[in-house]
Design a protein around this nucleic acid. Structure first.
Ligand SMILES: [Mn+2]
Ligand SMILES: [Mn+2]
Ligand SMILES: [Zn+2]
Ligand SMILES: [Zn+2]
Lengths: 144, 144
DNA sequence: ATACTAAACGATAAAAGTTATCGTTCAATA
DNA sequence: TATTGAACGATAACTTTTATCGTTTAGTAT
């Protein structure tokens, strides 16, 4: 394989109006190989092996750029702080990917299973993120 | 109404093996009246009006206790930092409420709509949290 | 009622995560 | 090759959360 494998990244940058820098490219290629759901610190640690002089700020800035341009995404929208739920009624949440506002939505109103592109109120659905909350097999025994 | 309304809280404390302190009770009563999905800081600001000397640390500690004992809950499990998703395949996530580990789960494997109490691998399902990600009506026009 | 003890509290330092600032370097374009 | 805005590295600042520790208090046994 002698094909120029960097071509897709250059295109990707042109499409999103960002420069093709060495750091950005190594970040992109490194992240693509990472499995799971790494934190910025974990990405930083990994990419430092290839570009030891890279700054943590650069990692953060480029993760934001990648997420904004849709190259990668956030696992679930991060709110910066814990949010507490006092409403005991079973319900789900509508989260705006721009302002991150959290709004309740009833199960019936959501119609789980029959996805809608738009909800009552005008909310434009990008995707449903289903978090199944519970206890993993390991924690069930090891008591964590 | 001259009935002792504090009785349920005292029971709740006894059931969970925690002391009935003034701060804890005011926190509980205050949080019960709060709508939406407040952060610890917002809870702190509100409860300070009734107990000006309360410490932010006490607010954090009691929120943890309330969440652990199931009195209240977290809107979606907080991971402390942003988590990036490089897997472009549409899938959902299984999150352990103890160790907070995030694991991928395919749509088919999840069987959205037909909830299971246990998933392949032994994960014990407590609840499904459905986040509908998208853009709210306000942000669609105001461009945030 | 009083004394005892573990739990809880307040104050605050420390840690962790993220963003902002700013001088320098570099990629894109002419 | 020269120009210039974007991106970079270093680091300070800020936000959120946890840890520490001396003091106070609730629960229990006298
Ligand atoms: Mn809610
Ligand atoms: Mn995933
Ligand atoms: Zn919005
Ligand atoms: Zn676990």
């Amino acid at each position: 394989m002698l094909v120029n494998e960097t071509k897709p990244f250059r295109e990707l940058c042109r499409e999103n109006g960002i420069a093709v820098t060495h750091q950005r490219q190594v970040l992109y290629e490194t992240m693509k190989t990472m499995h799971g759901h790494p934190s910025p610190e974990e990405v930083y640690a990994r990419v430092k092996k290839k570009v030891p002089a890279i700054s943590l700020a650069t990692v953060y800035k480029n993760i934001h750029i990648f997420v904004e341009s849709g190259v990668f995404r956030e696992v679930s929208l991060h709110h910066g702080s814990v949010r507490v739920e006092m409403n005991g009624e079973p319900h789900h949440h509508v989260v705006c990917s721009k302002c991150r506002k959290i709004t309740d939505i009833g199960e019936k109103e959501l119609g789980l299973g029959a996805k809608r592109s738009r909800l009552p109120g005008g909310f434009l659905v990008e995707r449903y993120a289903v978090d199944v909350i519970g206890v993993c097999a390991k924690c069930q025994k090891s008591d964590c």
